[in-house]
């Protein structure tokens, strides 16, 4: 795996973990029975990040307001470090996400976790998105023109 695709895979996993429902994550994580020995380097700790937008949607950045985030960093026995950060105040989710990030730096574990945990959650999230998109699409206005008079 090149470092570029490695980073992309890591980002994609983090994106799925950040958005996933806490109960669902616990359920799939417990099923994997991995729970590796580790040290906590940081957190889980909650704090704020300032959310930024752009003037006019595309211009200079500006601050919109803050959001709560929770982050955690862990170190496995072999020295691999994992990080996690997600919106909200769910410490347990941050800890599991950091463990997953650390484990997935080994090819073998990554394949297992991607298949058993990331893929199903990702699919469910995509499914929700698609349902919302279709619900929105149903509210699309189809204009029609009334022909009046005779030519």
């Amino acid at each position: 795996m090149t470092s570029e695709t490695h980073t992309e895979a890591r980002r994609r996993r983090m994106s799925v973990l950040a958005r996933c429902n806490s109960n669902r994550l616990h359920e799939l994580w417990d099923k994997l029975r991995l729970e590796p020995a580790h040290k906590t380097l940081r957190g889980p700790e909650s704090g704020l990040i300032m959310l930024r937008g752009r003037i006019g949607g595309t211009g200079e950045p500006f601050n919109i307001g803050e959001a709560t985030v929770t982050r955690a960093s862990v170190k496995l026995e072999d020295g691999t470090v994992g990080h996690a950060i997600a919106l909200g105040r769910d410490g347990a989710k941050a800890r599991i996400s950091a463990l997953i990030d650390a484990l997935c730096q080994t090819m073998e574990a990554a394949v297992l976790i991607d298949a058993e945990l990331i893929a199903p959650i990702s699919q469910e999230l995509d499914c929700d998105d698609e349902k919302r998109r279709q619900q929105t699409a149903a509210t699309r206005v189809d204009f029609f023109t009334m022909v009046r008079g005779e030519d």
Binding site: S46, G47, M50, R52, G57, I64, E66, R71, R132, T136
Partner: peptide
């Protein structure tokens, strides 16, 4: 409540053009 939490930093500017539009 906000004042009781530490500030970890800021986000990248969000891309409203890529919004999952609901309206």
């Amino acid at each position: 409540y906000r004042t009781t939490l530490p500030r970890f930093g800021h986000s990248e500017p969000v891309d409203t053009g890529a919004m999952q539009v609901e309206r």
